[in-house]
Amino acid sequence: MSSQATGSEVRKQRWSRQRRRETAWAYAFLTPAFFFLVVLLLFPIIFAFWISLHDWSLIPRPTPFIGLENYSTALSDALTIKSIKNTFIYTIGAVPISLALSLLLAIVMNQDGLPLRTLFRTTYFIPVITSWVAVSFVWIWMLEPRYGLVNAFLRLIGITGIRWLASPQWALPAIMLVSIWKGLGYNMVLFLAGLQTIPRELMEAARIDGANRWQSFLNITFPLLNPTIVFLTVTAVIGSLQVFTPAVIMTTVQGEAGGPINSTRVMVYHIYSMAFRSNRLGYGAALAFILFVIILVITIIQLRLTQREFEYA
């Protein structure tokens, strides 16, 4: 017994020595990544929060500690409220339409025997890999009210007078339109991947049971696509809350974006403008943390609402 126990202790000691060595190696491998994470991510985040508690100008001068004043100023500032509102309108307008359209496209592209399927898939994906800057400039010309292609087409069907980027009512929808168009291909590809994981047997069984296409979609396809829908919804909402490039490039007049009359001033541009154009770095940092909290809360709510267990049974 005692020799067995001794052997077991020896094994345990050996095991724990080996375990310790492995653990040490694990930490050794983790250290470089952890170092970069701390230096390039964690420290800047903490420092940005520190800056947000000060009247910190981009121009060197004293930076007095002002506590949460930047936060309270932001939450009572009409321009900040307007930019948050614009960002929400953009997100609520662009994300559902984009996801619905790309799901529809994915279902069509998923049909066996669809002629030129590869060509269509490639065509829809091209905007995804095209630079936002190039896309924005092309759409500025397409949306030009007098000579632009969009209004020329609308005139053919009797719709006139939309001033797009020059109108406070239409400028934000114009940017949404471009974002939807650009993001369609990416969402479509992920939906296609999701569709192709759904077992054919389930669809065939449903058909044998007398389900029509709509019933199959509603009761089989849609629930089984839930992981893809959750992923795309969460990432699309986060991306939309951080929209910047099209809103800036499509609305800049003489160096200032977000017009007309702040109708396209979105949150990230507002942060950039405050920090780097108005030199109010402390205020800009506070705005960035407000956006961070908004995104965090919305993401948690989304995950709670949309994630549900499912099994192929």
């Binding site: 500025i140 030009e144 020059a166």
Partner: peptide, 8 residues
Amino acid sequence: DSAFMTGQ
């Protein structure tokens, strides 16, 4: 006219 040839 702000809407005339926007961005050009």
